[in-house]
């Protein structure tokens, strides 16, 4: 699975905020220049980003395989007509699908090179006040509890499988799974909030220090150029 892996690549050493800027700029540029020529240039840029983060493109593609049916369906369904396959009708959806693929590749590079703590600090420093603090702490909790709740659901499913629960209808199975998993999640939330209060849960815990370094300058420049190019392309 694609997730953060510690490393020494250039992308690992960048500040998370400059990486978010590059991602945003790249996506904006991809939506502004959905032409064959634009996409060739963006493909080269995406491959550069992956190389700088030492991320293999096929790993990212495999991670996002669930989107492929949607990406393929658009050009195929548009192209099919009573007279056979009309390539001109399928062209623009195909370009749009390819553009999504490029955005996914760049997003994959961010995920592999940025730790949760850094992302949290970046959110909390970018979104001011209580909303930023809520997002920062909440996102940390989601990362913490996702594996726990997945294990809970796994145990619930094992339980009903061993009691031949799989013979029942889909709505009944959904209901059993939902009741059990919601009850466990709410019990965990109650215990977790008690534990948080016992540990003086505060709005302003100490965050890891984020500091822009020299290598962030070209990254921020790259992100800004992409944004400007996108604005220019739309106007």
């Amino acid at each position: 699975m694609l997730r953060y892996e510690p490393g020494k690549s250039i992308a690992h050493r960048l500040d998370p905020r400059s990486k978010l800027l590059v991602q945003g700029g790249f996506a904006a540029a991809a939506f502004a220049y959905t032409t064959p020529r634009g996409l060739v240039i963006l493909t080269l840029l995406a491959l550069c980003v992956l190389a700088l983060s030492r991320t293999a493109p096929h790993r990212v593609l495999w991670e996002f395989r669930f989107v492929f049916p949607f990406l393929l369906a658009a050009p195929v369904l548009e192209g099919i007509s009573l007279d056979g396959f009309v390539i001109s009708d399928a062209t623009s959806p195909a370009l749009a699908s390819y553009r999504v693929l490029l955005v996914l590749l760049v997003a994959g590079a961010y995920i592999r090179t940025t730790s949760v703590r850094d992302s949290r600090a970046a959110i909390q420093r970018s979104v001011p006040g209580r909303p930023g603090q809520f997002l920062g702490m909440g996102v940390g909790f989601v990362f913490r509890f996702l594996p726990v709740l997945r294990a809970d659901i796994g145990r619930i499913r094992d339980g009903y499988r061993s009691r031949l629960g799989t013979e029942r209808s889909v709505p009944v199975r959904m209901r059993i799974l939902l009741i059990a998993s919601l009850n466990r999640a709410f019990e965990r939330a109650d215990r977790f909030s008690l534990a948080l209060r016992a540990r003086c849960f505060s709005w302003n815990p100490t965050l890891p220090t984020l500091r822009f370094s020299r290598i962030d300058v070209p990254a921020i420049g790259f992100g800004l150029v992409l944004f400007l190019a996108a604005v220019y392309g739309f106007v």
Binding site: F64, F66, V103, L104, L105, A107, T114, V142, F143
Partner: peptide, 18 residues
Amino acid sequence: IGAPVFSGGSAGIGVLLG
């Protein structure tokens, strides 16, 4: 920001823009 919470365990801004 990378929690594998979207369909099929995927993540990232790319999914939101997909």
